[in-house]
Structures are given as C-alpha cells and as structure tokens.
C-alpha cells in the first residue's frame, strides 16, 4: 500500500487535477454557449414567445448534427480552431476546446427541456402584465427553471467527465487516460482499479453536491 502510494501517488494526484480541470472548465463554457442556445430553441418553437418555425427547424438540425459527431472525430476536426483558441492542440487546456464544443449542444437540449417544463400559464401571465420577451426569458423562464437547470447541470458535468477519458489521444492526461494506458495496456491491474475507484468517487461527489444545491434552491419544497 505504502509502496503503491509512493510510486503512483503523484501520478494519480495529477490525474485527479487534470480530470477536474477538464470537467469544470468545459462545463462552464458549455453553459455559456449552451444556455442561450437552449433558450433560443425554446422560444422560437411554434407557439413560443418569439416563434420562428423555420429558424427553429434549421437551428435544431444544427444542434442535432453537432451532437451526432463522435467525440474523437470532432477533436481532430477542429484542431485549427483549438490551436487558435488555446495556442496548441495538445494537452489538457487544448482539450477543453473540443470538450466545450461537444458539450454545448447537449447542454442546449437539457436547458430546452428544463424550460419546456414551465407552466405555459406562468408565461402568459407575464405577457399579460406587459413583459417584453427579454424580461420573460430572464425573469420568468430562467427563474422558474432554476431547480431543473441545476439537475441538468449535474448530468452535464458528469457526461463531460466521461468524455475526458478520450482526450488521452491528444495528450490531455486525466484519470481515464491513466487507467487505460498504464492500467489496462500495461497490465497494472491495481492501478487500474484504483483509478476507477477515484473516478467513481469524483462522480458521486459531483452528483451529491449538485443535488444538494438543487434541492435547497427549489422554493417549491419548503
């Protein structure tokens, strides 16, 4: 046990750090992109407050196409963009670019789903009171959907954590990469198991924290 920590402790610590970094940063930027995308998808639906059926159809298709690209292919595809943004195409920072772009459409759909759950009557009441579309979005839709958005955030974060395992292909490190390269390929089973356990702990931690926040933020259950 002692020997194990001595040999792999630093490697694993680095791996945890890299995994966290490659999970939290892309999640943040995926929401920066995906939240407005989700709002657009919702309000431009037929019957929405800014209905634009053709735009909605085209935009919806774009989102679907982005979601269909296998992550590995997407990573390679956008290398020029990654270089432009991160200065390089390799490493954990660079990997955040394809991670963000892959996650943004997923987040958009989750946000859309959260907004769809809001009672139509609440939106109509706001319209009756003379609210502008912007006010409806910011003061009704995004307010009433907060608990649902937080639960979606939990799901999105863990999904992105799953993607980070593939980023080893661009030298990004992380726990998944360690498990695969050192644990599986080089038959160091104990290392592989430890890495998996660490990943499980990370997931449980993230899930637990977000669920707690969502519950406490929901004013309907007081």
């Amino acid at each position: 046990m002692q020997a194990f920590i001595e040999e792999y402790g630093l490697l694993l610590l680095g791996g945890v750090g890299e995994t966290l970094f490659m999970t939290l940063v892309p999640t943040l930027f995926a929401y920066v992109l995906g939240l407005p995308m989700g709002v657009l998808l919702t309000i431009t639906k037929p019957g929405g407050i800014a209905a634009a059926p053709r735009f909605n159809a085209v935009f919806g298709w774009l989102v679907n196409i982005l979601r269909s690209l296998p992550f590995m292919i997407l990573m390679i595809f956008i290398i020029p963009l990654t270089r432009f943004i991160a200065g390089t195409s390799i490493g954990a920072t660079a990997a955040c670019v394809p991670l963000t772009i892959a996650a943004a459409p997923f987040v958009a759909r989750m946000v859309e789903q959260s907004l769809e759950e809001i009672d139509r009557g609440t939106v109509e009441a706001a319209r009756c009171m003379g609210a502008t579309n912007w006010q409806i979005v910011t003061r009704v839709l995004l307010v009433e959907s907060v608990p649902s958005l937080l639960r979606g955030l939990s799901i999105s974060t863990i999904t992105i954590l799953g993607y980070t395992a593939i980023t080893g292909a661009v030298g990004a490190g992380g726990l998944g990469n360690i498990a695969f390269r050192f644990g599986y390929q080089r038959y160091q089973k104990d290392l592989m198991y430890v890495t998996v356990v660490l990943l499980i702990l990370l997931v449980c931690l993230i899930q637990g924290v977000f669920n707690l926040i969502a519950r406490r933020a929901d004013k309907r259950s007081r």
């Binding site: 109509e124 004013k219 309907r220």
Partner: peptide, 15 residues
Amino acid sequence: RRMGVVFQGYNLLMQ
C-alpha cells in the same frame, strides 16, 4: 399594463 389579469391556476412564480 392598464389591465390586471387573475387566472384560475394563479400563475405565480413559484421560485
């Protein structure tokens, strides 16, 4: 804004 509306389902902001 010159008309107030009261709905059957109240339509309040729950949050």
